[in-house]
C-alpha cells in the first residue's frame, strides 16, 4: 500500500480540537439544514395559502 495513503489517516488527528470542532460544526449544520428547509417550505405554503385566502375574500 502507498505509504502516503497511511499518512492521510482521517482518524489520526481525531482527538485534536480542529477535528472535533469540524465535527461539531457539521453536526449543527446538518441538523439544522433539514429543519430550516422544511420550515421554509412550510412557511412558503402558509404564505401562499394566506395569499389565496386574501384573494378569495377580495373576490367577495
Amino acid at each position: 500500500m502507498n505509504q502516503l495513503v497511511l499518512l492521510a489517516c482521517a482518524v489520526c488527528g481525531a482527538g485534536e480540537d480542529r477535528a472535533s470542532g469540524a465535527l461539531l460544526v457539521m453536526t449543527i449544520i446538518i441538523s439544522l439544514l433539514p429543519l430550516g428547509m422544511m420550515g421554509g417550505l412550510i412557511g412558503y405554503f402558509v404564505y401562499q395559502s394566506r395569499k389565496g385566502d386574501q384573494a378569495a375574500e377580495d373576490a367577495k
Partner: peptide, 9 residues
C-alpha cells in the same frame, strides 16, 4: 469536511 479536518496537517 470531517475527514479532512481529521487528517494530519
Amino acid at each position: 469536511t470531517i475527514s479532512r479536518a481529521g487528517s494530519l496537517p
